[in-house]
Computed example of a mutant assay.
Amino acid sequence: MRLDLLRAALARRGPFTRVLVAEVKGSTPREAGAELWVWADGIEGTIGGGRLEHDAIAAARRGETGSQRVALGPDVGQCCGGALVLALERVDADWIARTKAAEVFARPLGGAPEMPLAVRRALARARDRGEAPKRWIEGWLLEAPAPAPTPLWIWGAGHVGRALVSVLAPLPAFEITWIDTAENRFPEGENGLRRIIAPEPARAVALAPREAAHLILTYSHAIDLELCHALLAHGFSQAGLIGSATKWARFRSRLRALGHGDAQISRIACPIGDPTLGKHPQAIALGVASGLLREKRATGPASSGHEQEGRAG
């Protein structure tokens, strides 16, 4: 649960109904944890579209709260074949305050008002062992704050940079900072992203948190090399550089001459992406994004926000 995003949505547009996929069984359009926010005049997010989402939006606008168990085939005529539980809650300032005060926010949304033993045990394991609780237990919804998103610095607003942002920006797992040398390098309409205009990009490396991941794909090999040099001195969790094996061989030689050891240099991944997908900017972006998501999932919540030895490619 990203409480910061919920709080921001409340401040931006006022109270809303949060529709959360609390539990899934079998094939469903989205995974448990997917959510949709519903206002009278708009929505944000998705629980998978189709009749399921249409009916959920209508229920939210009627003011319904609580839980709904939906068998996708019999109930809404969707061919996924699975079943799920939707939890509907009104998000307002009081809800935010109650959520913020709880290490794990547990509340009944269809079960008995008295906390079941299974819920108490799950809360105890979360408190004593740091164990992530099951989300849906006997009609009770349990949520812990989600780990902070990974700071992701994208160096370059050319074709590949734009493709990467288009793929990665909607994902809550990443908090993007986008850097290039001039304002006119950026496309119009990319609002909500932090941008840095840096005529000398390597000097901006000092602004990055040391747990950030970096993708280097500027228009200049000289700038790329300066960024690699600066990042190796500064520290990072992951770094990827666009380029060929020949480019990387030359960079490795030059980085050694600048005083970096092979073990450190090898932490930069080059080339990036999945070569089997091709060299089209969107294909590169898809390969890089899938690698970042796999890494994020593999490290898990306990590792979020800490320096890792993984690669961005």
Rank of each mutant, 00 (worst) to 15 (best):
R98Y: 04
I96Q: 01
K134L: 10
T99L: 10
A144M: 10
L123G: 02
W153F: 15
V91H: 13
W140E: 05
A124L: 08
E143F: 06
R125L: 04
G139L: 10
R127T: 01
W95D: 07
A102H: 02
A126M: 00
R120D: 04
G139P: 11
W136H: 05
I96C: 12
A93E: 15
R90A: 11
P116I: 05
D92Y: 12
A102P: 01
R125P: 00
P116F: 02
P149N: 07
V91N: 11
V104I: 13
E143T: 12
V119Q: 00
E131R: 01
D92V: 10
K134Y: 10
W95R: 07
T150P: 05
V91P: 13
W136T: 05
T99H: 14
A126C: 06
L117R: 12
A106P: 05
P108F: 12
I154W: 06
I154A: 04
P147T: 10
A126H: 02
I96Y: 01
T150D: 13
A97Y: 00
I154S: 09
L141W: 11
V104D: 00
I137E: 03
R129P: 01
E143R: 12
L142A: 05
A122K: 10
L141V: 12
R125C: 01
R120C: 04
V119D: 00
F105N: 05
I96V: 15
V104W: 07
P113I: 12
P116Y: 04
R125D: 02
W140D: 08
R135S: 05
P108N: 14
K100I: 12
E143G: 06
V104Y: 03
G110T: 14
M115F: 03
A101K: 06
R129H: 09
R90E: 07
P149G: 07
L152W: 08
K134G: 04
E114W: 07
P149W: 09
A112N: 12
R129M: 03
E114C: 09
A122M: 06
A93F: 14
R121V: 09
A148I: 13
P133A: 00
R90G: 09
P108W: 15
P147Q: 06
D94F: 09
G130N: 01
G139F: 06
E103Y: 11
E114P: 02
P145G: 11
R135Y: 03
K134S: 14
W136G: 06
A146Y: 09
A146F: 08
D128P: 02
R90V: 13
A144V: 08
R121H: 14
R127F: 00
V104M: 03
A124H: 08
D128S: 07
K134A: 13
E131L: 02
W136A: 02
R98E: 06
A112F: 13
A146S: 11
P151S: 13
A122C: 14
I154F: 07
G139C: 10
P113W: 10
A124R: 07
W136P: 02
A126V: 00
E114F: 02
I137P: 05
P113L: 11
P108V: 13
R98S: 09
A132L: 09
